[in-house]
């Protein structure tokens, strides 16, 4: 029975090809530093999963955001765990992605033929920071509010277009319900979509060129 289902699926999916192309790839000798990329991906998936579950109770409006998070933390079974993982996962992801980038830099893995992999990767780093920045406002507590006031104000000092940037970020002149809902939208739709797409490109490029080897004396 199980074998029949497997055969039926295999005929259509082609597990063999998947195995050969995805898993059974040759690689140069690596070390533990090479695990940081997959660790970043793992954290992205964790953030995605816990983030989706948080939206079950979270309400992105100034009147309810704070209370709904208090409810997640105290009222719902395991709410503290889901939010705790999301909270710490965010910090950890920024850290791991950054170290992953430093590793790539110091081993000069960004050089031919992996220039584009680096460019996409550095965009991924910036998007990760963007996720941290937009997610920071969502609890709508003192810390979130003031950090966003100050951060958007920094955008406002750019000569000429500063005022425009400030208003575009905040959705008006003040940090308000509009700011919260646009940060929410960016945090759960726009940035994750961009991240997921670029992660796909990043992974494709890695598979196309293979994992880089550590440089020798004569490289």
């Amino acid at each position: 029975m199980f074998k029949k289902i497997y055969a039926w699926l295999d005929e259509r999916v082609g597990f063999d090809g998947l195995y050969k192309n995805l898993l059974d790839r040759p690689e140069p000798h690596g070390n533990w530093w090479n695990t940081l990329g997959s660790a970043s991906l793992f954290l992205f998936i964790m953030q995605g999963a816990t983030g989706i579950f948080l939206t079950v109770y979270y309400t992105p409006s100034p009147d309810h955001a704070y209370d709904s998070i208090q409810y997640i933390m105290n009222g719902v079974a395991f709410g503290w765990l889901i939010r705790g993982i999301h909270h710490w996962g965010a910090s950890l992801m920024v850290l791991i992605v950054f170290i992953h980038m430093l590793r790539t830099f110091f081993s000069a893995s960004y050089k031919y033929p992996r220039e584009l992999t680096w460019i996409v990767g550095s965009l991924l780093f910036l998007l990760t920071l963007g996720m941290g920045f937009t997610g920071y406002l969502l609890p709508f507590n003192q810390r979130a509010y003031w950090a966003t006031v100050v951060a958007t104000e920094i955008g406002g000092v750019v000569p000429g277009i500063g005022d425009f940037i400030l208003k575009a970020l905040r959705g008006g002149t003040d940090v308000s319900a509009l700011t919260l809902s646009r940060f929410f939208s960016a945090h759960i739709w726009m940035l994750p979509a961009a991240l997921a797409g670029l992660i796909g490109v990043h992974l494709y490029l890695i598979m196309r060129h293979g994992e880089s080897a550590y440089p020798d004396q004569d490289d």
Binding site: A49, F53, V76, A77, F78, L81, I82
Partner: peptide
């Protein structure tokens, strides 16, 4: 470790 708490989290209001 994640799945079991998540189920509790989702069905909590019903309980």
């Amino acid at each position: 470790a994640l799945g079991i708490p998540v189920i509790g989290y989702l069905i909590d209001p019903a309980l």
